[in-house]
């Protein structure tokens, strides 16, 4: 199979370039990650992140033929050749397919992604109805792979001020949690022309999410909560 890989080594002094690679691999049942690892076995200098190789850890997000995907659950047979693999867009490239995720993580941390409940703590669990728990479905499953946020043009232009779809989805996860008491503060934290309102409903995030989550819908719910408390 034919591949075109984005290569960049900061130590070489060379500019980034696209490398053509031919790999003898039977695509049936194989994932893109298998191919990348096979290429790496031939040429150790290719660098990429990987861990669980089953789509739950979020390490190996890359841009494949123009779309952000997890290499480990992207079947080779689905891809048109030459398969063009690039690092995630919108983040600084450290080397080859590895980007600096810190701007993404920083936005995630900025929404205070932890449960806040200052009520006295019972010795057993806090109760939550199955219906209230169901509100978290579609939000808590995020694996922080950054496929969505790095496909968002609004994040490309304002990575330091726009929270981005992943962070906003997590913000909604805590707003929606019946056990969390900081809804007002969380809304305050987001109410800002940049932090939230850079989202224009482009919906690249929905298209990119490898877990089938819908950040745009969560952002819409946050906006309607903001409107509700204003009017």
């Amino acid at each position: 199979m034919k591949f075109r890989l984005y290569r960049y080594s900061p130590e070489s002094g060379e500019k980034p370039f696209m490398q053509d690679v031919e790999l003898d691999i039977e695509p049936a049942g194989k994932m893109l990650l298998d191919a990348l690892l096979a290429i790496k076995a031939q040429d150790e200098t290719l660098s990429l992140r990987r861990s669980c190789r089953e789509g739950v850890c979020g390490s190996d997000a890359v841009n494949v033929n123009g779309k952000n995907r997890l290499a480990c659950i992207t079947p080779l047979s689905e891809l048109k050749e030459p398969i063009e693999v690039r690092p995630l867009p919108g983040l600084p490239v450290i080397r080859d397919l590895i980007v600096d995720m810190e701007p993404f993580y920083k936005q995630y941390r900025s929404i205070k992604p932890w449960l806040i409940n200052d009520e006295p703590e019972p010795e057993v669990e806090r109760l939550q109805s199955p219906a209230d728990r169901a509100l978290l479905d579609g939000a808590y499953e995020c694996i922080l792979c950054a496929c969505c946020t790095t496909s968002c043009p609004s994040f490309w232009w304002n990575p330091d001020t726009f929270v981005g779809p992943a962070g906003l989805l997590q913000a909604y996860r805590f707003i929606a949690d019946s056990r969390d008491e900081a809804t007002a503060a969380r809304l305050d934290n987001l109410e800002d022309p940049y932090r939230l309102y850079r989202c224009r409903g482009i919906m690249n995030c929905v298209d990119a999410c490898p877990k089938g989550l819908n950040p745009t819908a969560a952002i819409g719910r946050i906006k309607s909560l903001l409107v509700k408390r204003r009017v």
Partner: peptide, 16 residues
């Protein structure tokens, strides 16, 4: 220079 966000506005203009 870090950029400060958190103006607690934006909903008005969005609504407008």
């Amino acid at each position: 220079m870090k950029s400060a966000t958190g103006s607690h506005t934006g909903t008005g203009t969005w609504l407008l």
